[in-house]
Design a protein around this nucleic acid. Sequence first.
RNA 1: GCGGAUGUGGCGUAAUUGGUAGCCGUGCCAGACUUAGGAUCUGGUGCCGAAAGGCGUGGGGGUUCGAGUCCCUCCAUCCGCACCA
Length: 728
Amino acid sequence: MMQWSLRITTYADRLLSGLDHIDWTESLKEAQRNWIGKSTGASIFFPIQSVEAQIEVFTTRPDTLFGVSYVTLAPEHDLVEQICTPEQKEAVMAYLLYAKARSERERMADVKKVTGVFSGAYALHPFTNELLPIWIGDYVLAGYGTGAVMAVPAHDSRDFAFAKQFNLPIKQVIEVPAEHNLELASYDEKHGKLLASDFLNGLDVKAAILACIAELEKQGKGKGKTNFRLRDAIFGRQRYWGEPIPVYYKDDIAYTLDESELPLLLPEIDTYLPTSTGEPPLARAKEWKYKGQYNYEWSTMPGWAGSSWYFLRYMDPQNQQAFASPDALAYWKQIDLYLGGSEHATGHLLYVRFWTKFLFDLGLIPKDEPAKKLINQGMIQGTSEKLRKLDPNKHTCYTFTNEQAFLTINGQVYALSQKPSDVFVSENALNLLGDLAQTLSGSNIDVNYVEKGQLNYEQFVQSHHYQDALFLCEGGYWYKGQFHVFASAGSDAIVCFQEVEKMSKSKYNVVTPDTIVAQYGADTLRLYEMFLGPLEQSKPWSTQGIEGVHRFLKKLWRLFYDANGQLQIKDEPAPKPVLKALHKTIKKVGEDIENFSFNTSVSTFMICVNELTELKANQLQVMKDLLVVLSPYAPHIAEELWQAIGMNESIAQAQFPVFNPEFLVEDSFSYPISVNGKHRTNIEFALDADASFVEQTVLQDEIVQKWLEGKSPKKVVFVKGKIVNVVI
RNA sequence: GCGGAUGUGGCGUAAUUGGUAGCCGUGCCAGACUUAGGAUCUGGUGCCGAAAGGCGUGGGGGUUCGAGUCCCUCCAUCCGCACCA
């Protein structure tokens, strides 16, 4: 099919090098580097003996050129049919059919299976003119490089496996360590001295690569080349919902619309489905034609078209002349912080960089990277409930004829009145199936119908169109709302098994926060999500411990209101311990916000409220500051208490309090005293106490004396404000 | 195979960046108040041990007066990419 695509490959190199200048997570940058897949090497031409054509191969190891013992083409390679000899024709055609039938997925899943066929033709070695058999094998990918490889079995494991399979020669051209047996495995390492390689002999791999490329270029038989794994991005979608591609066709030639004719809007259509002849939905709009006579392009743009630049529009959303004015662009420049999931690493987050670079090159925007900093938040995962399922095509214990179905368990055959639509197996019934149990696939069950690991059969069957499904249990089976007993001792419970995976509609494991909000309020939910752990970490959703966060909010409330619901805040100066508790919190939370460490902030607030409760703090200024610091975390309760203490303007407008280090200054410190690095006691010293005084006092301490056992210490380490360590 | 990350109490996690490991919260134990509690409050809670003390941050080794933190090595788990020539 003809397709629109965007030439992202042109930007491959810049997309790669740009990664070094942005503050994105290393794992995400690495994912993009892998995806772009830059490799440097050479492209080399191998003339074909019998026909007027040559095979171009790409290799990262031109140094091993003298170790080539055959050439392999991908089954889809253009030259395959042209070069194969009459004797081999039949075998080749059969192989091509086989390779075509094997889906891409199979090919990838089945990497170990080596298959191929000899074409009958020979290529000539570019330097030695040696005859090299041309093979066809599906371990060579049509989509990468030139779809052809020069095979060096001695120094490439895949070529080695192929050579062993088809008994092809293996020629060593690099020195290998004594313990390495080239009979058993290839030597793929990129170091060692070249041998049996004419002008490359004695060179190291790195030098040989350069020397070989130089010679190839001199003789016009190849050249140095950089290859990318990245493919151009398909840009057309055969769907309705997407921006129309502003192109029309005249005599089968595509023309773009003039800028003055934009935007091209989606036409109205009767139904959002392809036409009966398989055209995209837009083909349904019969009147939708350029100048009333030429068909528009019927494909629409993919989702990533819009998602690649919408952030620019946010800078100036009302602008009717341009997507954003130069002033707005100069002011906002780029995204300061992008908080997003790592699942977009090789999709959206690559496209948006590509798109940004393109607009930058056109001089339309001031930065060639969309986002300065990017953080991957972890996913809150779901706990799926699953039941194993019998497959009538695979599992012979479940058979059926047109009228009847039979279930064979422990040699006993049970006849079912009708063929069930599905057969699910409860966990406690797995032992009935013996070894078979291990081959059953898991099927997701809606978590809303599972309580404490057990499926609520009545509810589930009602609402899931599984009225005709059979649920095999330990003591019988559920079918059509009835339980049929076959073992009096066994239970009728339908027990699920659990698995933690991403929350998704299709996995029926989505839990909405609504019930939490209803029970505890939105602030509790919000705080609890932050309290669960670091932002970047993925973890299964669990409400274990949500009570603690809720209790914290109640405690906060009680700082403001006494047991009778009377406001107890006084406009009085606060004593030093209260100010210390407050300013510790201001400092820590301020730092946490900069570090996106929200879980530790919640903990800090808890400590603060515990301390203020202990101190019976009720001073207005302290409470005001506390509320402002808390407000981004628990906005609703903060706003409510803010108003309760007489503030009129919203707390969202209030200034973040300024941390005052004076309140944290201590004049003494309880030094941990260790002996040989092991903590033994604590002694309080003034912070300005001098080293010799501290040393004297420590050595006279009873506990230290005991550990000294009368010996004199080798030395005493004193780190001001930190520790004292006595070394014996 | 390549790359990225992670490993700390029963559990979720914390540790001023080389200086008292286990903060905060759950859970558990005990107690108070209650007709009652899935409410509230108080105390305890890393492990072994009666105690003194010993052990303890995935395993092993190293640097250091001192290592969860730095270095070497091995192991396990999760994620991404993968016959990429």
